[in-house]
Structure formats: structure tokens, C-alpha cells
């Protein structure tokens, strides 16, 4: 199978280039990550992040044939040849397929992605009905792989000011939590022309999310809640 992989090492002084690789003996059902690891066996210099191999840690997001995905849960059989692999778009490249994620993490931290409760803590659990809990499904499962935010043109333009789909999904995850008591504060922090309103419902985020989550819908719900609270 033929691969064309983005290569860049700042130490060499060379410009980034695409390197061709060929891999033989592909097992049926083999995932892209395994292919990359085999290529690395023969070319130690090829660098990428990876860990869990099963799509829960979110390390190995990359752009494959023009689409962001997790290498570990992408079957080779689903890919057109040559498989063109690039780092996630719009982020500074550290080396090869490894990008600088600092802006992405900063925007995540900016939405205060933690439960805020002002009431005294009970000595047991706070109650939550199964229906209230169900509102968190499709939100808490985010693995912070950045497939969505780095597929978002608004985030490419304003990674410092637009929170991006991943962070906004988490903003809604806490707004939607029946236990959270910081609704006003959270909504207020999302006001302004950039933080949330740069979302133009392009929906690339929904298209690429490897966990099947829907940040656009979450953003819509936030707007709806803002509207409801403004009366």
C-alpha cells in the first residue's frame, strides 16, 4: 500500500516535504496506526503521537486524504491510495505529524470546563434523574483529539479568539448539567463577536468527530438558552 506522508524536522533546515512510503503484507482489518508504526520500524525518524490504539485517548488525530481522523480506528481498507497523511491543519507543526496543541488546550481551559457548585457539599452524592443525566450523553465523551476544531475554518482564522467546537461542546456539557450552578457566568463568558459567535455552522466539526459527537448542535443549544434567558 502506498503512503505519502508530510515530513518536517526543524533541526535539518529543510522545508517540509511529502515522503513516499510503501508497506507490504497488509493484514485484513489493519488500522492506519499500525501501518504508521510499521513504517516507523524501518524509519525511526517518522514522528507522531499515539497511545491507547482504540480511539479513547485522542492522541493520534491527523489529516488523512484531506479529512481529520484518528489513525487507530481508521481501517486501511477504507482509504484511497496513495494515502496522503498530513498533520492536523491550521496548527503550527512541531515535527512531522506532531502539531502544537497549545491554542486548542487554552480555549478548552477558557470555558471553565469543570462543575461549579456553590451550595454546600452534601456528604453523599447529589441526586440527578436518569433524564437529567441523559442530557450529558453526546457531550462528556469528548476525547480532546482536536479533529473538530482543526477542521473548522473559523478556528483556522481565529484560534486565539474563537473558542472552537471542542471547547464549545464542553461549555454546553456544563451548562447542560443539572448540578452546575454557574449558568449566568458561563453564558456571559460566551458573549461577544468571537468566542462563540464566530461559528458559522459550517459543520465540519460534526462531519469529522471520530466519536460521533455534534458540537454544532451544542452551540445551537447554547444560543437557544441565551435567547431564552434574555427575556
Amino acid at each position: 500500500m502506498k503512503f505519502s506522508i508530510y515530513r518536517y524536522n526543524p533541526e535539518t533546515g529543510e522545508k517540509p516535504y511529502m515522503q513516499e512510503y510503501v508497506l507490504r503484507d497488509i493484514d485484513p482489518g489493519m488500522m492506519l496506526l499500525e501501518a504508521l508504526m510499521r513504517l516507523k520500524q524501518d524509519d525511526e525518524t517518522l514522528s507522531f503521537r499515539r497511545s491507547c490504539r482504540e480511539g479513547v485517548c485522542g492522541s493520534d488525530a491527523m489529516n488523512v486524504n484531506g479529512r481529520n481522523m484518528l489513525a487507530c480506528i481508521t481501517p486501511l481498507a477504507s482509504l484511497r491510495e496513495p494515502v496522503v497523511i498530513r498533520p492536523l491543519p491550521g496548527r503550527p507543526v512541531i515535527r512531522d505529524l506532531v502539531v502544537d496543541m497549545s491554542d486548542f488546550y487554552r480555549q478548552y481551559r477558557a470555558v471553565k470546563p469543570y462543575l461549579i457548585v456553590n451550595d454546600p457539599e452534601p456528604e453523599v452524592e447529589r441526586l440527578q434523574t436518569p433524564e437529567e443525566r441523559e442530557r450529558l450523553d453526546g457531550l462528556y465523551e469528548c476525547i480532546l483529539c482536536a479533529c473538530c476544531s482543526t477542521a473548522c475554518p473559523s478556528f483556522w482564522w481565529n484560534p486565539d479568539r474563537f473558542l472552537g467546537p471542542a471547547a464549545l461542546l464542553q461549555a454546553w456539557r456544563f451548562l447542560a448539567d443539572s448540578r452546575d450552578q454557574a449558568t449566568d457566568e458561563r453564558l456571559q463568558a460566551l458573549e461577544g463577536p468571537y468566542r462563540m459567535f464566530r461559528c458559522h455552522t459550517i459543520m465540519n466539526c460534526v462531519d469529522v468527530c471520530p466519536k460521533g459527537l455534534n458540537p454544532t448542535r451544542a452551540i445551537g443549544r447554547i444560543k437557544h438558552l441565551m435567547l431564552k434567558r434574555s427575556f
Binding site: 462543575l115 452524592e125 434523574t129 436518569p130
Partner: peptide
């Protein structure tokens, strides 16, 4: 330890009566 987690925000699945 588990109640603390709940207070930290862990989205535990719930029983019909609202408990973990």
C-alpha cells in the same frame, strides 16, 4: 472517594431514584 468524584462532576450513570 466515589462521592467526591460525583462532587468533582463525574457524570455517573443514574438509577431511577437519582442515585449513582
Amino acid at each position: 472517594a466515589v462521592y467526591e468524584l460525583e462532587h468533582f462532576g463525574v457524570p455517573f450513570s443514574r438509577l431511577a431514584d437519582g442515585h449513582i
